[in-house]
Design a protein around this nucleic acid. Structure first.
Lengths: 133, 133
DNA sequence: CTTGACCCTGCCGCAGGCGTCAGGGTCGGA
DNA sequence: TCCGACCCTGACGCCTGCGGCAGGGTCAAG
C-alpha cells in the first residue's frame, strides 16, 4: 500500500492568524476549547494545513453570529465544510435555535431595562427629554 | 445648646437586608462602593437608621434601571430623597442619558448579532424556520 | 555570535454584582 | 455552658473570549 500524500501548504500559527484575520492567541484559545486541533513540528511549533483556514473561518463565522465557543463545539464534525451553507444538521440547528432564544431573551431583558430608564428620565424631566438619537 | 436627638429605629445589616429585599453581602458591597455609609456599634457591627432603607431602595432602583454602581455614585448626594421623582440634577441626568445611550448601543449590537444568526438559520433551512416565539 | 522574528507554556486581567465559603467574634436564651 | 442566630473581614468564583506579559526556546540571516 502506498500512501498518497498530496503536497499541502503548511503553516504556523502566525500565518494562520493573518490568513484568517485573528491572532495567535485566539487560535490557541480555540484549540484549548477543542475546536482547532493542531499537528506539532519537532520543535513544538503548531503546524496547520490550509484546511485549518476553513475551520477557523467557520469558527469565526459561528462566533460572529452570536454562538459561544461552547455552542460551536457541536459543529466540530462539520467545521471543515461550508458551515454557513450547510444542510441542517439537527444538533446544530437545535443549538442555534436555542442560542437565538437566549439572545432574544437577553435583548428583551435589556430592552425592558432601557425602557424603564427612559421612562424614569421622562418622569423627572417632565417629558422634556428628546429620545436618544 | 441642646442637641435634639429623635428616637430613630436602628437596625443591623440583616434587618436592613430583609427590609429592602437584598442580602447583607450586597449591602456591604454597596458600602465598599461608597454608596452606603454605616455607623458601627462598639462590637463592630454595622448599624443603620431607617433612612438607610430609603437609600438602599434608591440604589436598587437605579441599578434595576440599568445603571452601574459606578453610575450610581454621582447620585450619592441625593440618595436620601425620592430619586425616582427627583428634579433633574444635571450631573445625574447626564449620567443617566449617557447610560441610556450605552444601553441602546449594546442592544443594537446584540440585535444585529441576533439578526445575523436568524438570517443564517433562514438560509440553511430554506426559510423553513418559524421566528422564535 | 548576535539580532530579530516567531513560537511555546502558563497565568493574571477584565467587566459586574454579588454568591459563597473560610475562619472567627458576639450575644441572648435555655 | 452551650447552642444558634448574627455579625465581621478577606478572598476566590462566576461567565466569556481573548489581551498581554513573563520567561524562555528556535532558527535563519547577517
Amino acid at each position: 500500500m502506498t500512501v498518497v500524500r498530496l503536497e499541502v501548504r503548511e503553516m504556523r500559527i502566525g500565518e494562520l492568524a493573518r490568513a484568517t484575520g485573528t491572532t495567535p492567541r485566539a487560535l490557541r484559545h480555540y484549540e484549548q476549547a477543542g475546536l482547532l486541533p493542531s499537528e506539532r513540528a519537532p520543535n513544538g511549533y503548531r503546524v496547520y494545513d490550509e484546511r485549518a483556514v476553513v475551520r477557523v473561518r467557520n469558527i469565526r463565522f459561528l462566533l460572529d453570529v452570536g454562538l459561544t465557543l461552547e455552542d460551536v463545539r457541536v459543529f466540530v464534525p462539520c467545521l471543515d465544510g461550508d458551515v454557513a451553507a450547510a444542510p441542517p444538521s439537527g444538533k446544530g440547528l437545535e443549538v442555534a435555535l436555542e442560542r437565538l432564544a437566549v439572545l432574544d431573551e437577553r435583548i428583551a431583558a435589556q430592552t425592558a431595562v432601557r425602557d424603564r430608564l427612559a421612562e424614569a428620565l421622562r418622569r423627572v424631566t417632565g417629558g422634556r427629554v428628546r429620545p436618544a438619537a
